[in-house]
Nucleic acid binder design. Structure first.
Length: 274
DNA sequence: GGAAATGTTTACCG
DNA sequence: CCGGTAAACATTTC
């Protein structure tokens, strides 16, 4: 469930199900579930009450009634599930209690690129999030300085918006969708772009991601689901990502797919001029 | 069997 | 230091 709209969907589910509850037990079931940088095993948060679930970009963290937080990144296939019907890929388990009510929370992760870690905070941010830039929906997000940052670089615009240290939360799907909406070719060099074009890309990213969030994110299969195991519906709204050879919804030209930084880029060769 | 999959980090090269 | 590229992590599906 991995880009900003999907992670935010998970965060909202966690707010419903775990905030205000006390962690009775927490244990990792797979050696890769715990980030090597974690200050300790998951059991160190047993007894703590969850006060809030926060997010920056694709990073989540559980605020506790103690100085430490439980930070989490879903990687490519991580899930937090309340009522898992599939426990094949459960990598960690939490039992939470609120009075007599008991909640079992699973951290599932097929590809095991996701992780959990116990971290300290600095200025309210977990250690692993310190270098991550604010995402487009945060109060701290300053689009003017983000544009200046991007403009200083001789990198492709898609590389810039995928860089979590420049602006966080955007992954391969929403990068392609944002560039399509902004009519900007993914390989345009940032330093040669007009400020207004960079601005339009970022505005488009905000628009696309808020629309995706409204429908619970993008799910192609059951890997990307909320805490109740439900899929999001943004896949039906995709205009470029995964649409190779499909007609561009704006001009009818077949969407093109190219290799980009070891992955795929999808764009309309007519609308998005290089 | 090969390729690809919504992420991040690191090594290496020029 | 900068940017590009490939690989690494691991699993599953088409």
């Amino acid at each position: 469930m991995p880009e900003l709209p999907e992670v935010e969907t998970v965060r909202r589910g966690l707010v419903e199900h775990v905030v205000g509850r006390t962690i009775i037990s927490a244990q990792a079931l797979h050696p890769r579930a715990l980030n090597p940088k974690s200050l300790g095993g998951l059991s160190v948060i047993e007894g703590a009450q969850v006060q809030a679930i926060r997010r920056r970009g694709k990073f989540l963290w559980f605020v506790l009634d103690r100085p430490l937080v439980l930070a989490a990144h879903l990687g490519m296939s991580g899930q937090f599930l309340i009522r898992p019907f599939d426990i094949r890929h459960t990598r960690a388990m939490f039992t939470l209690k609120n009075g007599r009510k008991v909640t079992e929370l699973h951290f599932n992760d097929q590809r095991t690129f996701g992780w959990l870690s116990i971290e300290e905070t600095l200025g309210g941010l977990p250690t692993s999030v310190l270098k991550i830039a604010p995402d487009i929906f945060e109060d701290e997000y300053d689009q003017k300085s983000v544009i200046e940052n991007i403009k200083r670089r001789n990198i492709k615009i898609k590389t810039a918006i995928l860089n979590q240290n420049i602006v966080s939360g955007i992954g391969n799907i929403y990068a392609d969708e944002s560039l399509w909406l902004a009519k900007v070719h993914p390989e345009r060099v940032a330093s040669a772009m007009k400020t207004s074009d960079i601005s339009r890309v970022l505005d488009s990213a905000k628009k696309v991601m808020s629309e995706a969030l409204d429908v619970g994110g993008t799910s192609f299969d059951e890997l990307y689901v909320n805490v109740n195991g439900d899929s999001g519906y943004f896949d039906i709204s995709l205009n470029a990502y995964g649409q190779e050879n499909e007609p561009c919804p704006r001009c009818g030209t077949p969407i093109k797919r190219i290799q980009f930084a070891n992955r795929s880029s999808h764009f309309c060769p007519k609308c998005q001029k290089s």
